[in-house]
Each structure stands twice: as C-alpha cells, then as structure tokens.
C-alpha cells in the first residue's frame, strides 16, 4: 500500500525545556518534520539527545513550549482535552520502553485496557484481545498474570496492547531495547507486516542500526535539533 501524500503528523519548530532557572534544560530546540500515513519512521540519535521527548510531543502526551504539532492537519492546541483523549485512545498505539503494565492483572486484561477505556463491551473486547494475542503468539498465556511473563513475552504483550484498538499510528520507544535479536525480530516483524499490509504508520525510537535501516525514513536528532532526515519521501522544513 502506497503512503498517501497527507501528513498524519507534522511538527513545526517544536521546542521543549525541562526544569526552571539554573536547572533549566532545553531538550528540544525547534524541530520540524512530517510523517505521512503508512510511513515507517525511525527516530535515532545519541542518548539524551531528545528522542523520547520528541516522541511524547508527537504522541500528544505532552505539549511543546513553542511550535505546533498537527495531527491529521489539526493543531493539537485547537483540540479539547477530551478530543485529545479520544484521539490517543482511538488513533494511537503505544509501546513504552519499560512495558508499563498493570501488575496482578492477567495478560488479557492488560491487552484489552485501551478497549476498556474506549468503553467497548466486555464480550467484544475479550474477542478482540484474543485476536491480537493470537497475532503475537501469546494466546496460550492469556489467563496468566502479566508480571509472570518472560521479557520477550512481555514485549509481545505490550505490542498486542498497542494493536488492540486498531490504531493508525504506533509509537514505540526502544521496542527491542531489552530483547535478544531473535525475539526482537518476532516483534518487529509483526509491526512491519502490519505496516506493509494495513498501512499502519510506525514511529520507532531506537538505537538499533539494523532496525532503523528497515524504516522508510530516518530522523537523526542531535542536541535537541533535527540534524538529518534520510528517506525517499521525508521532508525537512527549512
């Protein structure tokens, strides 16, 4: 499926700083980029360069100090808090670096969390939860406690959770960070398959050169600035 011309995500001159006074730190200093529907994007750069900060801004989890973030052509600032909640719930899927799951809950319960928040009826959400667990080959662990899974299984579980609500964009922060290469391949293979078959947009923060190389576009972040954009369709605003 060919990516459309329209940008799903667009940042313009986005900056973000943390702390106050002497402790103030400028994590991003004016980043402008476009991510198109169906594109796979890698955000790379040294540790502390601002990759996670950028991803959080693009995912509307945080708001920039200056600049704007558009999703589907609408500035996040023009959306109500409620609309932002709905957008994140229905359009985005998240894979966080440290898994973040509800301890003591079962694998299935964790996976259907976005659906529960969306208000999907119990029976439908269980069906959908089992479907995505099937996709990550974890269906047999559905009733297990989430904390009792191995590292690779947890990773697959959070990917299943990110896919549960059939998002248009997946944000993944170091999705292979804690995995050996074989397990990493299972997880990443699934994401790229969905990207190819269903036009799922991928935004992946990674240190992994090989993973970055598989993406259509690569944004290199250095010291809070977009240093370089590599890719056929990517545009870097002046």
């Amino acid at each position: 499926m060919l990516p459309s011309r329209q940008s799903v995500l667009r940042s313009r001159n986005v900056s973000k700083s943390y702390g106050d006074g002497a402790a103030r730190f400028q994590a991003l200093r004016g980043v402008s980029l476009d991510i198109h529907a169906g594109e796979s994007v890698a955000i790379v750069g040294k540790s502390g360069s601002g990759k996670s900060t950028l991803m959080h801004l693009l995912a509307l989890l945080d708001s920039p100090d200056t600049g704007s973030i558009d999703v589907d052509g609408i500035d996040a600032k023009d959306r109500s808090r409620r609309a932002l909640d709905t957008l994140r719930n229905e359009t985005f899927g998240f894979v966080f670096q440290q898994f973040f799951m509800i301890p003591n809950a079962t694998v299935l319960e964790n996976v259907v969390l976005p659906l529960k928040i969306a208000g999907m009826p119990r029976r439908l959400r269980i069906a959908r939860g089992m479907e995505v667990l099937e996709q990550v080959e974890l269906a047999d662990k559905a009733a297990n406690r989430a904390t009792a899974l191995s590292g690779g299984q947890k990773q697959r579980m959070v990917i299943a959770r990110a896919l549960a609500n059939r998002p248009k964009v997946i944000f993944a922060d170091e999705p292979t960070g804690n995995l050996d290469s074989a397990t990493g391949e299972v997880v990443i293979g699934l994401l790229f398959a969905l990207n190819a078959q269903e036009g799922l947009t991928l935004v992946i923060v990674t240190h992994d050169e090989e993973l970055a190389g598989r993406c259509d576009t690569r944004f290199v972040i250095a010291d809070g600035l977009l240093a370089r954009a590599v890719g056929p369709r990517s545009t870097v605003a002046a």
């Binding site: 808090r81 909640d85 229905e90 973040f100 976005p114 928040i117």
Partner: peptide, 16 residues
C-alpha cells in the same frame, strides 16, 4: 502512579 500514567496515555479522561 505508572498505571495511572499508562491509562492517561491511552486516553482515560480526568473525569473517569
């Protein structure tokens, strides 16, 4: 705290 953050990131509203 983390669980709350997770739910918020997934679009759980303040009121809920």
């Amino acid at each position: 705290t983390r669980e709350i953050g997770l739910m918020k990131s997934m679009g759980m509203s303040r009121a809920r």
